[in-house]
Structures are given as structure tokens and as C-alpha cells.
């Protein structure tokens, strides 16, 4: 347990600049968006005209219509939360795919694993470090979005604002654990990051386009972004979706662990990188 804690501590510390960078980035964006709502609200007539001038397809792409986008939830959904899974997803893809394989590709894992940590302690320590980093980014983001709520007419409490961040955290975990899982199967970290990133972007576009094109709905349902709850989460969080995504994340982590536990630690020049 002590050695798992050591690995967790070092992993979390090594991710500190990413936590600060992504977390503060989201937080500052949140402060800006929340303060912008009242400014725009003062010009509601003009805003309605602007929104009405948008093509319905464009509004549908962000999951809204001219009326819902003027509601506080619709406003936050369109201008902030619809894009956050992609923005924070970049962190998830890079951190997840590199969590273990980055050290392996740099030739450092060999010596680290030769220390008496054990593969289970090492793997779960690193995973908890990643989980802690994702959680920290969400907390910083949530604080940024909540900071000016008292002065805003959005009408949300700090607790209400935590709900979409819970959904965002689960989305982040899905992509991070997918990256981790693929890094255990594919020949290189960059390939794992590329495939995970492609799935993330495709998921975003297919889910958004499925609002306009019903034929894409079946495909969208097979992709994670479809189950991301932005506007909905303010009203009623779908716990089934939330736990299903969490379950998928844990399953991918479990599979990555089994693969890591069973395979050889790769060393450049020894054996096939592909076979592991």
C-alpha cells in the first residue's frame, strides 16, 4: 500500500503542470463565460436576433434551438460545456496513452519496475495519479465556473454547477482509459494517442451531426459523446448513462492492467516492439 502511495504521489506530482494548465484554463474560461451571460442578457433582444439569424442546422449541431439557447443551461451548454470534452479530452488522450508507455518508450520503465513496487502497485498507483489529476482539473474548472455565480443571473448554485463537471469527468476518464488500454495493445504511444484522439473527435462530430441527420443516430449511440450530459445535467442527471460510462472506463482500465501484468516490459532493441 505504501509503495502504491509512492507511485501515486510521484505520478500526481509529475502531472502538476498539466493540472494547473488545463485546470486554470477551464477556470478562466468559466469566469469569462459566466460574466458574459449578464452582459449578453442586457442585450437580449439583440441576442435573440443574432440567434435567430443562425441556421437551424448550426444550432442543432450544438444540441439546441433558438429558444433553448437563451436559457441559462442552453447558454452554458452551447458556449462552454459542449466543447469542454474535446478541450479537456486532449489532456485525457495524452495523459492516458503516456501513463505507462511513455516511460517504457524512453527506457525508464525497466529500472522503475525493478524496484520493489510490484506491477499491481505500480499500475494502480499511476492510474490513481491520473484519476487525481483529472479530478483536480474538474475542481479547478468548477471553481472558475462557480466563482461569479452569486453575481450572475444564471440562477445556478455551486452544487448545480458541479453536476455537468461530474459528467465531464466521466467523459475525460473514458478517453484517458481508452488511451491507456490502447497503449497496452498498440506498438507505440503515439499510435494509441492518435486512435483515441480520432475516436474522440469522430464521436463529437457524429453526435453533433446526429441532431441534424437521424441516420447518424445509431452510430452516435455507439460513441461516448452521445452520453455526455450538458444541458440535460442541469435539469436531471441520467445516472444510468453516467454509471455505464464509468463502468466502461473501469473495464478498459482492468483490461489494460491485465495486459500490463502479463506482458514483458519492452526495451528498445530487444524483441519485437509490436508483440511486446
Amino acid at each position: 500500500m505504501r509503495r502504491l502511495w509512492t507511485t501515486f504521489r510521484y505520478t500526481y506530482t509529475s502531472l502538476r503542470w498539466q493540472i494547473i494548465g488545463w485546470g486554470l484554463g477551464v477556470a478562466i474560461y468559466g469566469v469569462m463565460i459566466v460574466s458574459m451571460y449578464d452582459t449578453l442578457g442586457a442585450q437580449q433582444d439583440r441576442l435573440q436576433q443574432i440567434i435567430a439569424s443562425y441556421p437551424p442546422e448550426f444550432l442543432a449541431f450544438f444540441g439546441g434551438d433558438a429558444i433553448s439557447l437563451l436559457t441559462p443551461a442552453g447558454f452554458l451548454g452551447m458556449y462552454a460545456f459542449s466543447m469542454l470534452p474535446i478541450i479537456v479530452g486532449i489532456f485525457a488522450v495524452l495523459a492516458g496513452s503516456g501513463l505507462i508507455v511513455s516511460d517504457e518508450e524512453h527506457g525508464r520503465l525497466d529500472l522503475i519496475v525493478a524496484h520493489p513496487v510490484g506491477r499491481p502497485g505500480f499500475f494502480w498507483g499511476r492510474f490513481l495519479g491520473l484519476l487525481g489529476a483529472a479530478l483536480s482539473i474538474m475542481i479547478l474548472g468548477w471553481l472558475g465556473f462557480s466563482l461569479l455565480l452569486g453575481r450572475s443571473s444564471l440562477g445556478f448554485s455551486w452544487g448545480d454547477m458541479a453536476i455537468p463537471f461530474l459528467s465531464l469527468l466521466i467523459q475525460t476518464l473514458v478517453y484517458a482509459t481508452l488511451g491507456l488500454f490502447l497503449s497496452m495493445l498498440l506498438p507505440s504511444r503515439s499510435m494509441a494517442a492518435m486512435v483515441t484522439g480520432a475516436i474522440m473527435v469522430i464521436s463529437y462530430f457524429v453526435s453533433s451531426l446526429s441532431f441534424m441527420n437521424q441516420r447518424l443516430e445509431m452510430l452516435a449511440k455507439a460513441l461516448p459523446y452521445h452520453y455526455y450530459q450538458t444541458v440535460l445535467s442541469f435539469q436531471q442527471l441520467n445516472l444510468t448513462w453516467l454509471f455505464a460510462l464509468l463502468g466502461i472506463s473501469l473495464a478498459m482500465t482492468g483490461l489494460a492492467y491485465v495486459r500490463f501484468f502479463r506482458r514483458d516490459i519492452r526495451l528498445s532493441g530487444e524483441g519485437s516492439w509490436r508483440r511486446g
Partner: peptide, 19 residues
Amino acid sequence: DPVAVQSRTGYLPGEMQYY
């Protein structure tokens, strides 16, 4: 029992890589 072996062993790899 890899942990028991590793805790009583010192290892120097052929190529040292660090942070």
C-alpha cells in the same frame, strides 16, 4: 514473488535513462 526478490536485489540496467 517479484517484490520480495526486487527488495533484496540491486539492479543496474545496460542503458540508464532518467527524468
